[in-house]
Write a protein that binds this DNA or RNA. Sequence first.
DNA 1: GATAAATTTAGGTATTACTTAAAAATGTTT
DNA 2: AAACATTTTTAAGTAATACCTAAATTTATC
Lengths: 145, 145
Amino acid sequence: MRVKISLTPKEGKYLTFMYRKQVEEDKSASTTILAKSFKVNPATATETLQRLAKKKLVEYTRYYGAKLTERGMVEAQRLLRKHRILEILFVKFLRYDTEKACEEASKIEYYCSEDLINTICRTYGHPDTCPCSKEIFQDSTCMGR
Amino acid sequence: MRVKISLTPKEGKYLTFMYRKQVEEDKSASTTILAKSFKVNPATATETLQRLAKKKLVEYTRYYGAKLTERGMVEAQRLLRKHRILEILFVKFLRYDTEKACEEASKIEYYCSEDLINTICRTYGHPDTCPCSKEIFQDSTCMGR
DNA sequence: GATAAATTTAGGTATTACTTAAAAATGTTT
DNA sequence: AAACATTTTTAAGTAATACCTAAATTTATC
């Protein structure tokens, strides 16, 4: 890591949302869409995009839109991995349905350590998909032991 | 619930810390002790106590100290319950040692829903002590089904 | 080119959580 | 009890996060 990335919870939510749109749905997330999704004023969405741009997590062109950078992708995947590993735990161990599992994961994903997530991941034999069949990204420190 | 209690993460930490001192160790937590424990300036501890007093969670007398109110006790127990149920999960399911379990629980306890905690609690047959043998408080909505 | 829609800028607010410096209260010592 | 030390509080800040409205600007559409 060259520069340390400090991500706020909201910024994390924006990154994963944008990742889903950009990579998994091949669309782009406009200011309006972001604002609607997060139930905030468009001005707020713009502001958050600008903060993410300052942190080099998105490439932002005013009036045009924003795209995740390589670093933004990595961060989004890191968070989505946490989210999906937690979903596995909640569905398999606590017998939650996928929707409820997703909700609970959303509440805590940001605060769970890599170590905790890796331990759950190992417990379930490094699953490669979450309960709703989306990809779970590999983590070198998790696999390598 | 007469008035809704909105607790910040830090306020929660103060409440549980004070609970442990006041109820489990029968001591009291002075401004200095709080400040040292949380590695902040004493002025900050005072400020937080005053905020807790405004929310009727502690009874605060300047220069004298603060004591948890009935409501403060309930909130502290609610958080300690979450903490200890999480410890159970981490020790029993993930084979964490008690210290590590405590650390991880501290990171997420505040953000876990009652429902999630109750589900874990039921899974382990409503345990009455945590891995370090401290009391786990009962929750009516958890037992009652 | 006018008008509509989307986006951004400017200039706010509120909350949380922290700081330093000085004042005030309390405790201790002689 | 006066002097000194310690603890605690007040006052007056700062910084970050996350939101807002209103007006300006840019882009898209008729």
